[in-house]
Design a protein around this nucleic acid. Sequence first.
RNA 1: GGGCCUUUAGCUCAGACGGUUAGAGCGUACCCCUGAUAAGGGUAAGGUCGGUGGUUCGAGUCCACCAAGGCCCA
Length: 942
Amino acid sequence: MDYKQTLNLPKTDFPMRGNLARREPERLKRWQAMGLYQKIRETFAGKPKFVLHDGPPYANGMIHIGHAVNKILKDFIVKAKALSGFDAPYVPGWDCHGLPIELMVEKKVGKAGVKVSPAEFRRACREYAQSQVELQRKDFVRLGGVADWEHPYLTMAPRFEADILRSFGKIVANGHLSRGAKPVYWCTDCGSALAEAEVEYENKRSPAIDVRFKAVDEQDFLSRCHHVPEHEGKGPVSVVIWTTTPWTLPANQAVALHPDLEYALVQCQTEHGPERLLIAEGLLKDVMDRYGIEDYRVIAYCRGKDLEGVRLQHPFYQRQVPVILGEHVTLEAGTGAVHTAPGHGQDDYVVGQQYGLPVENPVGSNGCFLPNTEYFAGEHVFNANDHVIEVLKEHGALIHEEVIEHSYPHCWRHKTPIIFRATPQWFISMDDKGLRQRALEEIQKVRWIPDWGQARIEAMVENRPDWCISRQRNWGVPIAVFVHKETGELHPKTVEIIEQVAKRMEEDGIDAWFELEPAEILGEEAEQYDKINDILDVWFDSGVTHECVLRRREELGFPADLYLEGSDQHRGWFQSSLLTSVAMNDRAPYQAVLTHGFTVDEKGYKMSKSRGNVVAPQKVMDRLGADVLRLWVSATDYRGEMAVSDEILKRTSDVYRRLRNTARYLLANMAGFDPAGHAVPHEKMLPLDQWAVDRAWLLQQEVIEAYEQYQFHQVYQKVHHFCAVDMGSFYLDVIKDRQYTCQTDSLARRSAQTAMYHIAEGLVRWLAPILSFTADEIWEFMPGERAESVFLTEWYQGLQSLPETSAMNREFWEQVMAVREAVSRELEKLRERGGIGSSLEAEVTLYCQPPLYDLLRRLEDELRFVLITSEARLLPLEQAVAGAESALELEGMKILVAPSGHEKCVRCWHRRADVGSNPQHPELCGRCVENVEGPGEVRRYA
RNA sequence: GGGCCUUUAGCUCAGACGGUUAGAGCGUACCCCUGAUAAGGGUAAGGUCGGUGGUUCGAGUCCACCAAGGCCCA
């Protein structure tokens, strides 16, 4: 007789292999067809809200793995929050304006205003951005995130553009706007500013000159130095600067020294007679060699900081300039003293801001000095170099001149050298209305994850200069203001005008401003005003999504519960959002900010094309599936760098298979199980099954806690450990016999099935945020009535804990497992000796002292099922025979294992003395006979 | 060059208050099973905690410096 038919073997259609690359896209279609996102919204309507606000990726190029990490982490949170009973909407967005898109479009259609009209150019930008959004959306959707992909926010939507402008208007109304000047790359041939990306570095020959700046008050100067005894010296005292751009000297406002560098005052003889020159000590020899001076002597020393504030005479203008301090001063070249013209250099500008130096710019847009520039009016700056040198000579200020070749920025278009030129710009002032102070206060109130994020953004906000928000570009939201032609003041009704323009922009987008006739708004006043054509920095666009998205979308709300981006956004979006929100709302736009690290390769190096270590998310999804990618994200502690490599993904796939197979085995054992009719009440379940549910109950607390703390790698570790150890290695292995051999509808079997059912209900939800595709697939195979998708449910409430007072409580099973391990070790030894193969071929005798003896006694004759041996005898330790091995790590126990001498029951594979005792069933053991045609075996414990 | 951060077995992670032979899972090796089978079970071997120097009776765990990486600046 084929007794196999009398067994309850596992059976399921749930595939063992995920086949994710093929199956995931099918499931995506189903989600889309059923309107999953909408269904989730409806299901959770009315629950407390949790708003995770999506930071917009820039709409340019294919998504890389960093994008994937970011979106997947967000999805974990949104899904876990739903399971915890929150209404957690997620509206994705894209950042659509800005220079990178302009540059891409320039390549295609040419420069705005040159080959195409600005209006056409903007149209082309809009089309390009839209195409990039589609490209990226496709990949984002593939990742499996639940989001309102049909209705994302785009910063280039007309309504959005209008709201950006309105946000700007609020900031103006609150008095944070200021106008100033700032040096930018400037091509005198283009007659316009260049972006950094439009600058190329090439070699150029330039004059390199050394110039004296005489001390106005020599006594003051000398009193700050440490003198070498008996060398007072004589002649004028000067600080010497070195520059390769003589033409910037008319705009000089200061001389910068490094605060901590050592400077030497040198007595020497020049064509002007005896004099004293200040040079950085570390460059002294080089400088003297350059000047050809052999006879010199140091007569005093000082640190740069000793001279702060000393007044110097400008070399040819009738004005004095201060000595200032800057960390940017180096000993790489020159004299260690840096001529500072804030209107003509980035460093100079920054340090000039700190000292409140004027940002003077005597150079016109064509590169010629303005008419009121003494000596040089009308001359082009590069031609003026010689003239400047002449004037310096006339004033006795030139010490040395030569010509050098060096790397110098050039216009990528004209290939001509460019200059730094201060131009009028708009700023959000950090201090005029206390924005910096208020922002710092708001930072305190936000929860930063990890907590060092707070120190990081604090330092940045403390030190940042005013935010320059204007750009002289085409693809962006206009700074829609009018400035009085003579006074330079904003129109008194600027705030109202902005709202009028915003209304027009709701219909026509940004073109509404560029095509606006000023008279339409200003009437007769139009004559007196200039219409500003600058656009806003794109960081402003994304920085006001709290206004344009959170406040505009009904399902969201201000402030957000969470912003979540890469750690680079402390300087970027977190800060731009904070500053605009404080400027507009006087509070931070978020309650909490979470940052993740960047992806690196297995050696910890950043990913780059040149290194060839780039891992493309598309490839991972095509080869291994989005769920494996998601599992990798969950497994990695995102607080530091996140390493990816083939091996790491391989390991991740291994874990995936383990999780999948655990779920599959649970499903396979629930074949024919209907929870409504077959579920066993908790108190009637066998103690071992109660224990298994208890493990799940405990784990669920930890899983929920880990999700709440955004510690996804803990979820990963714990759930995996549960599947591999608690379930695979112990519980599921032990209950096989009971599952397979007991009667189909017996309590023994239904009890285990009930446990597996509860465990599966828990497991499918723990996995859902991470293995979204797989969990939803498992969901479909689960028995019982249930919602359409796992994402429409909350945490499973059917798990119960095991009472501490139970005779077989947690501690009891812990001991049993320790015994089991000890027995396993002995069985392994026996196996190595060739004594047995399967553990069912063995019999084991345990010689124990109390309390272990009493503990194991409780299992009665079911101990053998826990040990998966054909016999398990329990005897007092005193009766231990020779050959019984002491159990390691277990007090008072000896173990004797031996091959069973009995026949193997063909049905349950146990070797029992009673095999064949029933002539009707000569191949069966006693309990199998009972299970096959009797009332069925009774199990009480395991 | 500066600010912030990371560095524990091949991989991913644990390691309050400094204190027994540094843990887990995976992977690996070997064995078993063939009624989870492109599955499942067992046993074992792998770290001295990036490096150096301190504090301490005692440090992966505190301090200093260095190294290799990362983000953001310059």
